[in-house]
Design a binder for these strands. Structure first.
Lengths: 147, 147
DNA sequence: GATAAATAGTACTATTTCAGTCCTGATTTG
DNA sequence: CAAATCAGGACTGAAATAGTACTATTTATC
């Protein structure tokens, strides 16, 4: 149903917790409790987020994670990409050359444009935005133009 | 990777073929050949599209399918919804009440806003648009505002 | 009215993906 | 050195997906 995976969903929740936690490091354990998720699951996705460079980790006792950048500079698109790979609605728009139909597929270029629109929509919402419950109207002006 | 299913992808291709076929009915067989897909697959998705009211079918010999509305009035969002159900990036944003975390989930409202942005992006591209190879710039002004 | 062509509906299966868990190793603090 | 914590990989059960097959129904033509 055109959805992101649960892991990605959890990842946004955990990242939001991290953003609200401030500057110090927070352990995976503490994040799991705050997000009400299982520790192994949280560990797994934090590892992925760390590899993608969205969070920085500190090992050892009193270790934990913190955001690698300011919440204003981390977007939903970053998180989705970290968890699921490149954003592409169709196989051929994410990776060229895999589809037999490419030579006679007039639809492909248009899908790429749609992808772009969606990627822009995701890139226009930052972690900082997620911290706020939206105001009545127009608090996050997402403006996407396919050009 | 945030993608639509292959069936949905095929559906857009088949719908595009139908749009370019003009007013008469076109058989599933002919559509399969033009889209270079297997007949059973095309039949299956045409049935779904018919149930969703996007195509009209004529039975019997010389039967086939035609668009139920003008291509300008059928959007990618219509096709995606017909094939995959309601557009929702996360479980909780498509169906309320299923998620244990809802009471303490500050992320949910924001996901709903993102969904809306994406739904708008898909709703702003019509079948008629898909028929054209995009011009150099600004041929499909998709403008999405989360308000 | 019989026949052929085409859609309608249902069921089934193999494959793939996803979610979740567990285990072992590496690192740091005390 | 011991405890706490992250890193990396492997594994498994469940679910979704894709594709196929079969039967019933409808309609035009002869």
């Amino acid at each position: 149903m055109l959805r992101v995976s649960k892991l990605t969903d959890y990842a946004t929740a955990v990242m939001t917790c991290l953003a609200s936690a401030g500057d110090g490091v927070t352990s995976a354990q503490a994040l799991a409790e705050r997000a009400r998720l299982e520790l192994p699951t949280v560990s797994k996705l934090l590892k992925q987020l760390a590899q993608a460079g969205l969070v920085a980790s500190t090992r050892g006792i009193n270790g934990g994670y913190r955001l690698a950048r300011a919440p204003e500079r981390i977007t939903i698109a970053d998180i989705v990409t970290a968890m699921e790979g490149p954003i592409g609605m169709t196989e051929c728009s994410a990776h060229a050359g895999l589809c037999d139909h490419e030579p006679h597929c007039g639809v492909r270029v248009n899908w790429q444009r749609i992808n772009q629109a969606i990627a822009n929509a995701l890139a226009n919402v930052t972690l900082a935005d997620m911290l706020h419950v939206p105001r009545q109207r127009a608090s996050i002006p997402v403006r996407v133009a396919v050009t």
